[in-house]
Structures are given as structure tokens and as C-alpha cells.
């Protein structure tokens, strides 16, 4: 399953994969199981279809148990919320994901959001912890230090 999880970098990808696994799981009980092979061809992405076929062919694994295991693993994934001042490119996403998986583990996905008021930098939220590395907070704290003197100067 590691090969499958390596492809999941963001929370949107995780949700998409979860949706596809749910479609396949439900299809196991439709038309006496015949819907499964049909939906494996028509209902999910090509790479996923190829991967699942290969895995099920190994050791004649039970499809229901296997898909259920994938779903449980996906549910155990944690999300790191990353708010940026710009919309990231594919290459940015790759780099961020690599760093996150390296330091926090394989089962962490990134939930990107965009807030231009941050100016630069980012804010991070992970397992209830919050860190603000944006230029906005830096400017606010620097301004707070000098605003008293600034107002006095402006008054004169």
C-alpha cells in the first residue's frame, strides 16, 4: 500500500481516493459482485484500477478485506493545513509534500489554502497546533513596537 499512499500528497487527493474506494466497496454487493469488475474499468482512474488489479492478483486477496484496509488506512491520515500567500504550482506541491512526509511521516497530507493578506510566508496548523510564519504577523508585531512613537510624531 505504500506505493499507493506515496501518490497522495494533498487532502483533495486523499478525498478523491476515498471516494473511489467507496464506489468499489459498494459495487462488491451490486449485481452479485459483477458490478465490481465493470466499475474497476469505468468508475475509477486508470492508475488506481491497474494498481488494484495487480494487488488482488497477488495471493488471491479478498477484495472486500483489501479495500476496507485501504479505507481504514486513509482514515488514519492526518492533515496539515498550510495557508500560503500564493497559489502553489505542481512543483511547489511536490516539494512541500516531500518535506512534510520526511519530517512528519508518510501518513500526512497537506490541505492547502490561499490567503493573500499574509503577504508572504505561511501559517501551519497540525493536530491542533498553530504556527504563524507570515510576513503579516511580523509586520504587525514590529508596528506594535513603534506605533506609540509613530503616533506622537504624527501628532507633532
Amino acid at each position: 500500500m505504500e506505493a499507493l499512499f506515496e501518490k497522495i500528497k494533498t487532502s483533495e487527493e486523499k478525498d478523491k481516493l476515498m471516494e473511489e474506494i467507496d464506489i468499489l466497496l459498494n459495487s462488491l454487493f451490486q449485481n452479485k459482485g459483477e458490478a465490481f469488475s465493470i466499475l474497476l474499468k469505468t468508475g475509477v482512474r486508470a492508475w488506481l484500477s491497474e494498481y488494484i488489479r495487480a494487488e488482488l492478483a497477488k495471493d488471491e486477496a479478498n477484495p472486500f478485506e483489501y479495500l476496507k484496509k485501504i479505507k481504514e488506512e486513509l482514515n488514519s491520515f492526518k492533515a496539515l493545513k498550510l495557508t500560503l500567500a500564493f497559489e502553489p504550482t505542481e512543483s511547489n506541491i511536490e516539494k512541500f509534500s516531500y518535506a512534510v512526509k520526511k519530517y512528519l511521516g508518510e501518513k500526512v497530507v497537506i490541505e492547502f489554502s490561499y490567503n493573500p493578506t499574509l503577504i508572504a510566508g505561511c501559517t501551519l496548523t497540525y493536530e491542533g497546533k498553530y504556527r504563524d510564519f507570515s510576513m503579516k504577523s511580523f509586520f504587525n508585531s514590529e508596528f506594535a513596537k513603534i506605533k506609540q512613537d509613530l503616533f506622537i510624531q504624527m501628532a507633532h
Binding site: 496548523t125 491542533g128 498553530y130 504556527r131 504577523s137
Partner: peptide
Amino acid sequence: YLNKIGEIGFVDEIVHSIAYVSGIPS
């Protein structure tokens, strides 16, 4: 408080005068 404590939570559900909040681990 967000910057001072460094923890954040999100409101998941509100039932009249009670809110269920996820996050804020400590």
C-alpha cells in the same frame, strides 16, 4: 491568544448554547 498559546481548534457542531470544537489538544 492564537499566537500566544499556539493552538487552534475548529467548530464542528453547534447545538443551541453548546459548541463541539476539534483541535486545541491541551
